[in-house]
Design a protein around this nucleic acid. Structure first.
Lengths: 189, 189
DNA sequence: GTGATATTCCTACGCCTGTTGGCCTACACT
DNA sequence: AGTGTAGGCCAACAGGCGTAGGAATATCAC
C-alpha cells in the first residue's frame, strides 16, 4: 500500500496529465482513461495511486494564488499590481496556475465550485482583509473577483478576440483602476 | 418528416426541459435521456424532433440580450443602466435569459463557446459601437464583458457568498461606475 | 539466490451515453 | 369509411465511463 520512490515519476506524470486535461477541457473531460493514455500507462495505475477520479481531482487541484508575493505594495497601486500578478501567473509557458482549470470545471462540477469558494475565502478575501483592513473586506474581495475571474473567463476560456489579443500592459492600465477602486474606493456599506 | 401542430406541445416541452438542464448543470448534463424523462416521453422523441443532441442544443440556445430595450440612455448613466438591465434579465422567477446556460456550457463545450463569441460580437460589441460610436468599441465591449460575465459567474454559477447575497441596488451602485468608465472613460488606444 | 513487495497490465463488470429502426396507435383528409 | 401519415414507445446497438480483482513482472533486502 505504501508507495516508494520508484513510482514517483509515474505518479507525478499522472498528476500533470490530469492538470493538462483539466485546464484544457474541464472535469468531465478528464477521464481516468484519457489521463492514463496520455501518460502511457494503464488506467488502473491511476486508480492505484489516487484511489478514484475525485481523489485525482483533489490531488491535482491545490491552488496557491501566491498572493503573499504581492507584499507591502503602495496602497494606491494595489489594483494595478493585482491585475499584473494574475496575468503573470496565467501567461506564458511557465504558467502553472490552476485557477483556470478550476474555472473550467466549476461551471459543471459541484466539487470544483466548492473548492473555488474555498480559494476565494481563504486567499482572496483574506488577502483583501489583510491589506485594506476594511470591515467590508469580503464584499470588496467579491467585487475584485468578478473583475479578475471575468478577465480569466473572457481571455482564456471563451477567448473573446479583443480580450485574448490584448497585451498585458494594456489590460493592466485599463483594469487596474477598476480593481483599485473596488479595493479602496468610496463607501461600500 | 414535417411536424404538425399536434406535436407542438411536446416539442416546446422538450425545449424548455433542455433549457432547464442547461441552466442548472451545463451541456454534458443535458443528456437526451434526462430531457426526455423530464418531459415524460421517450428519448427517441427528442431525436425525432431535434435530430441530435447538438441540434437540440442549437434550438435551445437562441440568445437575445434585448439590449434594444436599453435605448436612448443618458450617456453618463449607461454603465448603471447596463448593470441593472442584465441583473433584471437574470433575476427572479421570470428570468428567461440563456446567457447563464451558455456560460455553464461554454467552459467545456466548444460549440457553446463559439456561440458565446457570436453573442459578444453581434450583440454586445454592436451595442457598444452603436451607442458610443468609439472606434475602439470592440475592445471597450470586451472590457464591459469581463465585468458583466464576471458578475454572472460569481453570483449565479460559483455563488460566492458576498456576490450571491448582495442586493441589486448595491451591485448597480458599485459596478455601474466601472462599466461606465469602460464605455466612455479616457483613452483606450 | 530466494522471498517479499511494489509496479504494472489485462480482463471484466455494470452503468450511462447518443443514436437507430421497427412497431403499434390515433388522428386527418378524401 | 378507409387510407396515409405523424406521434409515440420499445428494444437494441456500439461505445465510453469509473472501478475491481487477479496475474505477471520487476525491483529490492537479505
Amino acid at each position: 500500500m505504501a508507495f516508494t520512490e520508484r513510482s514517483a515519476a509515474t505518479r507525478t506524470a499522472i498528476l500533470s496529465a490530469a492538470r493538462k486535461l483539466l485546464i484544457e477541457r474541464g472535469y468531465e473531460a478528464m477521464t481516468i482513461r484519457a489521463v492514463a493514455s496520455l501518460v502511457g500507462v494503464d488506467p488502473s495505475m491511476v486508480m492505484r495511486y489516487y484511489g478514484s477520479k475525485a481523489g485525482l481531482f483533489s490531488a491535482a487541484v491545490d491552488v496557491d494564488l501566491r498572493l503573499a508575493e504581492v507584499d507591502r505594495p503602495p496602497a494606491d497601486r494595489l489594483g494595478e499590481l493585482l491585475v499584473r500578478h494574475f496575468l503573470a501567473r496565467w501567461e506564458g509557458e511557465l504558467s502553472d496556475d490552476v485557477l483556470i482549470m478550476l474555472l473550467r470545471s466549476a461551471s459543471t462540477n459541484p466539487m470544483a465550485a466548492e473548492r473555488m469558494r474555498e480559494v476565494f475565502e481563504t486567499q482572496i478575501a483574506a488577502f483583501v482583509a489583510r491589506l485594506t483592513g476594511a470591515d467590508d473586506a469580503a464584499y470588496r474581495a467579491g467585487l475584485v473577483s468578478t473583475q479578475l475571474l471575468g478577465l480569466a473567463l473572457t481571455r482564456y476560456v471563451l477567448r473573446f478576440p479583443p480580450m485574448a489579443d490584448a497585451d498585458v500592459e494594456t489590460l493592466v492600465r485599463d483594469l487596474g483602476p477598476a480593481v483599485q477602486h473596488y479595493l479602496t474606493g468610496g463607501d461600500r456599506t
